[in-house]
Design a binder for these strands. Structure first.
Lengths: 110, 110
DNA sequence: CCTATACTTAACTATATGATTAAGTATCAG
DNA sequence: CTGATACTTAATCATATAGTTAAGTATAGG
């Protein structure tokens, strides 16, 4: 099993634990948006939206760039893949038909 | 895109955002463990461990059963798959080389 | 230049999270 | 029965999270 920086998965999963941030990711997946544009579809203040954007940016799921008086947000899926890999490895190993056998072999060794 | 209960993904991602809980999931993946057994490998109190176990149980990632004075925890990967599906769909759509084309086609339809 | 827009920063608030200690309950071992 | 083990519950605490309002800065348009 590949070992990732503990804090990276913390941040990625933490960021995705909020429905607003997942909506933003979904929205940005379809194309770049300014902070105001993300705000339009949310029932919260621009300041609150900006904070979510900053959290997504800090964990690398999105990047932002200032253009004139707007800040444009874009989706960057690399960190999603790290989280997805963790889930896939954690789940697929277990799901494997060899699960029981593996248990047996490990106990045999110790 | 399949739509899941908003709160389910909240809880699953929230549960996985903590390194202790990810360790427990990894540990339980290898076989059932009692709360004390999970506690042995953690630098925290049994009470703290139990709380993490309860969080994992509430979101369905594990189940627990009382046996005598011990509580045995077992891994249940179904909810992992829901989270994994969300990530895969969110990422793969974007990663696709057809991303730009897909955007164009969707705009064309509307 | 002036004004509206689009952030940005600061201060504050309420609730959630992650941990603790202390005290209680239930069961297994002798 | 008695004591140790394995939770379980309750009270508490510090910090983080998710939001708010208010005030400030910077830029596009007239």
């Amino acid at each position: 099993m590949i070992k990732y920086q503990e804090t990276e998965l913390d941040r990625t999963f933490g960021a995705l634990a909020d429905p607003t941030r997942r909506r933003f990711v979904t929205e940005l997946r379809a194309g770049d948006r300014t902070v105001s544009q993300l705000c339009e579809k949310s029932a919260m203040s621009l300041v609150a939206v900006l904070k979510h954007v900053q959290i997504l940016e800090e964990c690398g799921l999105i990047r932002t760039e200032k253009r004139g008086r707007t800040r444009v947000c874009s989706f960057h899926p690399e960190k999603l893949q790290h989280a997805e890999s963790w889930l896939a490895e954690t789940r697929s190993f277990w799901t494997s038909a060899l699960h029981g056998l593996n248990d047996f072999l490990q106990e045999d060794k110790s």
